[in-house]
Amino acid sequence: MNNKFYEGIKKILASARNRAYQAANFAMVESYWQIGKSIVVEQGGAERAEYGVGLLKELSARLTADFGKGFTVANLKNMRQFYLTFPNGYALRSELSWTHYRLLMRVENQAARLFYMEEAVSSQWSTRQLDRQINSFLYERLLSSKNKEAVGKEVLHLEASKTSEDLIRDPYVLEFLGLSPRDDFYESDLEQVLITHL
């Protein structure tokens, strides 16, 4: 078998895995956005968060009983904040994970948040890379720098992006799909769960 043939097959499988991960991940992101919106609507708007304390506790208990862990009061508050931070669901990017969005929600400046969101997509930043750039104030440094090119070049020296295997084993995605992050689940298990959620 020639190496070029094998590399072609390998590329097909890696691409398929990435598409499957993105589809499952975006289904999770969209559902969390919709849950956040539902919570805000049930509370009667953004200013009625106090009412939500009891609502979130009850919702957390019932969702945990029906769907397993991942629906703590803190995570439900994150979903609520997700909707409030990104009120236009059509603007959500399928390339970004729930962890990306949780990091982006911490950025108060809307222009900076949009910058980090676009850079994370175009540069395929891992969540670790995004966190590093937010914490190093890349946006602010670019705005205030006279040598924007030099500041921009430092971003090129980041660690490699996640592999498709890392993406598929993301604990948030596995939890959302109802799988535990263990090493002994079979590809057919993952395929069936992905089909069910799509």
Rank of each mutant, 00 (worst) to 15 (best):
Y51P: 00
E50D: 08
G44N: 02
E42A: 15
A46L: 08
Y90F: 04
F86M: 10
S94H: 09
F67A: 04
T64E: 14
L92G: 13
Y90G: 15
L56F: 05
L55Q: 03
G36K: 05
V41S: 06
L76G: 09
L55K: 02
Q81Y: 01
V29W: 01
K37N: 05
G70E: 08
M28L: 15
S94V: 03
M79D: 10
Q43C: 14
T64V: 11
V29L: 05
A46I: 08
S38R: 14
H100V: 02
S38K: 11
P87D: 09
K77M: 08
G36C: 02
Y83L: 11
T64C: 06
T72E: 12
K77D: 02
A74Q: 12
V40A: 11
T64F: 02
F67L: 12
N88Y: 01
F67V: 00
L104N: 05
L103E: 15
G44K: 01
G68K: 03
Y32A: 13
E58W: 10
Y32P: 00
Q34N: 11
E42H: 04
K69R: 13
P87F: 04
A49M: 03
K37R: 12
G89W: 00
R93L: 14
Y83W: 14
Q43D: 08
L104M: 09
S97T: 15
K77H: 07
R80P: 09
A74Y: 10
I39Q: 06
L104A: 06
P87S: 09
S38D: 14
K77T: 07
W33V: 06
I35H: 03
K37Y: 02
V29M: 09
T64W: 01
E30D: 12
S38G: 15
Y32D: 14
V73R: 13
N88Q: 13
V41N: 03
V29C: 09
L56V: 02
T85V: 14
R80M: 13
Q34M: 05
I39W: 06
Y101H: 13
F71R: 13
N88W: 00
S31A: 04
W33F: 14
M105Q: 13
V73T: 15
V73W: 05
Q43T: 01
E47C: 02
W33S: 11
R48Y: 09
L76D: 11
Y90V: 04
W33A: 07
M28N: 14
G45E: 05
S31W: 01
T64D: 06
D66M: 10
T72P: 01
Q34A: 06
